[in-house]
């Protein structure tokens, strides 16, 4: 009996901490979502779940616009990062002199503070003195900044995110390539397959589980953390052109002080993420079992 309680002894402090910093806030979030909580007007309060839900999901298009912005950004960055990451991983998979020397430099962006990354790109895109504006000036375009145009602000954010997170894909996909067994490649070579056929018909299918894990991890992370660089590059603007769900939840709560609306947006993100995490877990568990 005592022996069966042992693992609990090791786990209980962590579980207590985790429960208090997740379950308690979650319950509090549900409270926020179902009441009227306006920081600047503490007199207003009371149960209003259906009103709140209607306000966020039905009465204004803002939530769905932010959802669309988020989806566009996530799909765009994950696709680009995957394609670029796969290409770079393939090159780093081949042997050349200086490979191990230059590889760490390709990983640098991933470790930088996202806020600083956003800052760098904000200034690179700056219409007055930014490096990119300087190049445009050379071809006759004055004071142009893509971050100031609603139609192109997202492009700027995508570039910054791709710059920071392509190294993540490179790192994971390269690790995946290195873990592949040798013999299928040798057999294909004996059969006279060319490099592209080997890549398409042997390497990619064998890497499928790792590709799925890498893409899912990046998707979850992009969905969650599309905040820091946007906050600093555009703060969701111009207008609401780059307001993702995370930025919307933040602005509702801390710019307009409608805590209940922020909580509803945040909780809706939680639901979506929970589903994605469940799928991810199935793939990780599947790999461990194999």
């Amino acid at each position: 009996m005592l022996r069966r309680l042992r693992p609990l002894l090791f786990l209980s402090p962590t579980l207590l901490i985790l429960l208090s910093i997740t379950l308690f806030p979650l319950v509090y979030s549900l409270y926020l979502a179902s009441h009227t909580v306006i920081l600047t007007n503490p007199m207003l309060s009371g149960w209003s779940l259906t009103d709140n839900l209607r306000e966020v999901f039905i009465e204004s298009p803002e939530y769905w616009e932010s959802m669309l912005t988020t989806l566009i950004l996530v799909v765009a960055v994950v696709t680009l990062e995957f394609v670029l990451g796969l290409m770079l991983a393939y090159f780093f998979f081949s042997n050349f002199r200086g490979r191990n020397l230059i590889f760490p430099f390709f990983l640098m962006p991933m470790m930088l503070t996202p806020v600083v990354v956003g800052t760098i790109w904000r200034f690179l895109f700056n219409g007055e003195f930014g490096l990119i504006a300087g190049l445009l000036k050379a071809v006759g375009v004055e004071n142009y900044s893509i971050l100031n145009q609603p139609s192109t602000a997202l492009v700027g954010i995508v570039i910054a995110d791709v710059w920071q997170w392509t190294p993540f894909m490179l790192l994971l996909l390269l690790a995946g390539m290195r873990a592949l067994p040798r013999s299928p490649f040798e057999a294909a070579q004996v059969d006279g397959a060319n490099a592209f056929q080997i890549f398409r018909d042997i390497m990619l299918p064998m890497m499928k589980p790792i590709i799925i894990i890498a893409v899912l991890m990046r998707t979850i992370d992009a969905f969650n953390r599309m905040f820091d660089i946007i906050y600093i590059m555009t703060n969701g603007g111009p207008g609401r052109a780059s307001e993702t769900l995370a930025v919307m939840a933040f602005r509702q709560s801390f710019e307009y002080f409608f805590m209940h609306q922020g909580a509803i947006v945040a909780l809706s993100m939680l639901v979506i993420i929970t589903i994605m995490v469940k799928i991810l877990n199935r793939f990780i568990a599947g790999r461990k079992g194999a």
Binding site: P7, L11, T14, L18, I21, T22, F24, P25, L26, Y28, S29, L32, I220, D221, F223, N224, R225, F227, A246, A249, F250, S253, M259, G262, A263, A266, L267, M269, L270, I273, T274, V277, L280, N281, A285
Partner: peptide, 27 residues
């Protein structure tokens, strides 16, 4: 329930930080 517990702990790492940030601010 060990694997479920391990999964619960992992999933906390993947939750949107904004979900925790709002109530933690109030608390």
């Amino acid at each position: 329930g060990r694997d479920d517990l391990a999964f619960y702990i992992l999933s906390i790492r993947m939750f949107p930080p904004i979900v925790a940030a709002l109530p933690i601010f109030m608390i």
